[in-house]
Design a binder for these strands. Sequence first.
DNA 1: AGTGAGCGT
Length: 144
Amino acid sequence: MAMRAAVAAAPRGFRRFFCTNTASSPFPFVPPPAAGATSARQMADPNTNLFVSGLSKRTTTERLREEFAKFGEVVHARVVTDRVSGYSKGFGFVKYATIEEAAKGIEGMDGKFLDGWVIFAEYARPRPPPGQPMQNPTPYYGGQ
DNA sequence: AGTGAGCGT
């Protein structure tokens, strides 16, 4: 179901609304998830970068910044938009000055409303740092 | 198109 996919993708906080307690499950056949599928994808290492999803299409970068700035010093904020169309993709990134501010930003904005949509704030995944030489070097021919 | 899960121009 699409709903379970949303639950699985729910970055911590909304899972309790669907799976409150396994001990009070009406079915005694509760598969133990503590075999290796504990938490790997939706949990990231705490850093100053925050991944904010569930944004409205109308939510802009400055709106995202001023909303997350209430919980800490926002160093960088960006709503990911399509390069060609320029429209928002519905998610963005917010970078705080410190990790503790990022934690307060998550606890303060995760599951909250923004422009009519419930947004999800969590730690962003580490991005492949640039430094690799140009993988597509322009062929340098002597003539034209 | 203004899609609805996700990880960046």
